[in-house]
């Protein structure tokens, strides 16, 4: 119950911030539209990039939002106060997971609707799987954001963890250079980065009409990475501080 109340509280905070809600919905759709015109006349290229972007936007945006939200909980004292109440650490962490998962589903829903219905995105597999993977990516971004916020003392530091933790994953996920063309050591790094599997899962949906075993395996890896990041984040929540 406390978990659901916490989820509700986080969503209510989001709802009061109309501009953030508007940007959550509008920014990915605008960027997809931009991609559409950039690759005007090259539908194959657009399909390839837009599909991956549908998964990457929620990852980056939720990373940023969560790391700032959690930092605020720390700096305004609400975290310390929460930890003196019967709330369990998992109530808080999974509360964030659920709330931002819902926000990500709305965001991915709008972005996918635009991509498929207006921008003629073409994938072999169903759009529903794209949304599912996009939500998993958002939750991954959220979990890493929660973890990163523990190492930031100010908002300035928190936002800089985005390039540290998110950009390398983006560079090495196979979007810019196909993974099998990378140097061996780069591939090895790419192998341990969760976004790599998220992108591969999306590419599977793009290339196959039915969900493949690889897609489900990749999805499970992303989910596993979420759990690992959340457990690590729980370790950073200390009830007693110096």
């Amino acid at each position: 119950m406390i978990l659901l109340h916490t989820t509700g509280r986080i969503l209510r905070q989001l709802r009061h911030d109309r501009r953030t809600v508007a940007m959550l919905v509008a920014v990915p759709t605008l960027l997809l539209t931009l991609l559409y015109f950039m690759y005007d006349g090259q539908p194959g290229v657009f399909d390839h990039i837009a599909l991956i972007m549908l998964g990457v936007f929620p990852f980056i945006i939720m990373f940023l939002i969560t790391s700032i939200a959690m930092l605020r909980e720390r700096t305004t004292g609400t975290l310390e106060r929460l930890l003196t109440t019967p709330l369990r650490k998992t109530d808080l962490l999974f509360g964030y997971g659920l709330a931002f998962g819902v926000a990500a589903a709305v965001q991915a829903g709008f972005a996918s609707a635009l991509a498929y219905l207006v921008l003629d995105l073409d994938t072999q597999g169903a759009a529903g799987y794209v949304v599912m993977i996009a939500v998993a990516n958002a939750v991954l971004g959220m979990a890493l954001g929660l973890l990163a916020s523990a190492f930031a003392k100010t908002e300035f530091q928190a936002v800089q963890f985005m390039p540290v933790l998110a950009v390398p994953q983006l560079l090495l996920c196979g979007l810019f250079v196909p993974r099998d063309l990378m140097a061996g050591w780069l591939q090895a790094i790419s192998d341990v980065l969760p976004l790599t599997y998220a992108v591969e899962a999306l590419q599977e949906v793009g290339a196959h009409a039915e969900p493949t075993g690889t897609m489900w395996r990749d999805f499970a890896i992303v989910a596993g990475a979420v759990v690992v990041a959340l457990v690590a984040a729980a370790g950073t929540l200390r009830r007693r501080t110096p």
């Binding site: 905070q13 305004t76 004292g77 106060r81």
Partner: peptide, 15 residues
């Protein structure tokens, strides 16, 4: 136990 911190620790973006 109830604890009121010196700086108000409530959510500014909630009523």
């Amino acid at each position: 136990i109830g604890y009121l911190t010196q700086a108000p620790s409530v959510y500014a973006d909630l009523t």
